[in-house]
């Protein structure tokens, strides 16, 4: 592109962002905008795909056929979300194959929450309520993200996530209103998932590397701390209905701020998990690589069949 074209492209891009319009795949955009979006969408897609593992762990042991069918549908949705997001990232020129390779090589991340184990059936409830709940708080603003294909994928994802959160909440409610042992199991799951869920909003804004620029580009609409606060304020009354306790002795209403004071998650732990030292990092990646390799013969067979059908037929 010549200098004038870049200038024209940049001013058109700035005008679209200022007017709260969407940027579409073939529009001019700054390289940093493109790279930021590819990185964020890829990480988001990888999270959906890796996120299938902790839940799939309980498909064979779901307590009833109904719950098993529901969990299967949920895990299938996660695969779908990953595919919507890979497809959205591809509109920016990244190939899905490259993104896969970067994940499998450990060069791109996925959400650190999926490096925690699902020890009991109640964990499936806690994941739905807290992890999917936090994801919804994070993701609803992305439906208004400045990049059109990402925003459209997020609208579809958010619609489906609300089923996920409700099914988790229902699992916990059933357990917490069951036997004392079932209630204890529900409480134990909430105790273990609460702080990792708070950590899903990322480091505090003061330490967040990409926040400011993403806000200017309207990729991100709210800061990490604001979304974390919103999540806590939503959870407190929901926990009361469950009759379960949020494991934070410092949790109390602050009338001056109009929000709950709470203990922040352990950000040092978050960074350790991000760097690969969570309880399940190695297991998750090993399983993903294995699944990819085990599926190779299916992809090869389908490609061979397609190639054979494309060959001209001779009489």
């Amino acid at each position: 592109m010549y200098g004038n074209d870049v200038d024209a492209g940049a001013s058109s891009f700035d005008a679209l962002i200022a007017a709260d319009q969407r940027i579409e795949p073939r529009d001019w955009m700054p390289d940093g905008y493109r790279e930021t979006l590819i990185r964020q969408m890829a990480q988001h897609a990888h999270s959906e795909i890796i996120g299938m593992q902790p839940e799939a762990n309980w498909i064979t042991r779901a307590p009833t056929l109904k719950r098993k069918a529901i969990l299967l549908a949920k895990v299938q949705d996660e695969a779908g979300h990953g595919l919507y997001l890979y497809a959205a990232a591809e509109t920016l020129g990244a190939t899905r194959q490259t993104l896969y390779e970067l994940l499998l090589a450990g060069k791109q991340k996925y959400s650190s929450i999926f490096n925690y184990p699902t020890l009991t059936w109640a964990d499936i409830g806690a994941i739905g309520w807290l992890v999917d709940g936090a994801a919804i708080v994070n993701q609803v603003p992305l439906c208004r993200c400045s990049y059109g294909p990402y925003a459209r994928a997020m609208i579809r994802i958010c619609k489906e996530e609300s089923f996920h959160q409700r099914q988790g909440y229902e699992i916990l409610y059933t357990l917490s209103h069951g036997t004392p042992a079932q209630k204890a199991m529900a409480q134990d799951a909430v105790d273990r998932w609460w702080y990792p869920s708070l950590a899903m909003f990322g480091p505090p804004d003061t330490e967040s590397t990409h926040s400011e620029r993403s806000m200017a580009w309207k990729i991100k609409r709210f800061g990490n701390d604001e979304l974390r606060q919103r999540f806590v304020d939503m959870c407190v009354p929901q926990a009361a209905v469950l009759d379960l306790t949020i494991p934070d002795p410092a949790l109390r209403w602050n009338a001056d701020r109009g929000g709950y004071d709470f203990t922040p998650p352990d950000y040092a732990e978050l960074m350790a998990v991000v760097r690969g030292n969570g309880p399940c990092n190695r297991q998750r990646m090993a399983h993903r690589r294995q699944a990819y390799e085990d599926g190779a013969w299916v992809r090869e067979a389908a490609a061979a069949y397609a190639a054979k059908r494309r060959e001209p037929v001779h009489a």
Partner: peptide
């Protein structure tokens, strides 16, 4: 949206899912 598939028949089935 879009998806990857080796041929049209698979693309239709994948699109349904």
């Amino acid at each position: 949206g879009s998806l990857h598939a080796p041929d049209a028949a698979m693309a239709l089935r994948n699109a349904r899912d």
